[in-house]
Amino acid sequence: MATQAKKTQVSMKVNGVEVEGLVEPRTLLVHFIRENLQLTGTHIGCETTHCGACTVDLDGRSVKSCTVFAVQADGSEIITIEGIANADGTLSALQEGFRMMHGLQCGFCTPGMITRAHRLLQENPNPSEEEIRFGIAGNLCRCTGYQNIVKAIQYAAAKINGTEYQEAAE
């Protein structure tokens, strides 16, 4: 018979802002982000760690926030899609790349995909197509067939590296 466990206080830095909240231990990080913090850009697609729509950056790691408890993230630093844009509010290179290369359609996987790609480019600033495909394999997209997502990430990598993105083929 289920009974509600005692709530506990958690605090963390989300997109550079200190936040706190009172949660049940079983509260999943994705629900804390979406419902307590009302940052609804992080999406829920499968709840079983297969789709990656809920990907956030937690202490420099891409994690699927549907499978982490909010209490586990106590004291951590988190970046969600809402924290990806440039400080002046303009689209980051990745966000711009997704738009320029038509790397999204329904937009549901996009926040997780961009957040994951953000970490990928931090770890590998100049990835090959194969490395990009491997690096985003934890994120499912139903609309694009990935081809333009790969281009979007290549576009962003080029822009960050200060080079011109050359689209391989039309």
Binding site: T49, T55, S62, V63, V68, L120, I136, A137, G138
Partner: peptide, 9 residues
């Protein structure tokens, strides 16, 4: 093993 996100955990 699994995918990048899961390998971080």
């Amino acid at each position: 093993i699994a995918d990048p996100q899961i390998r971080y955990c």
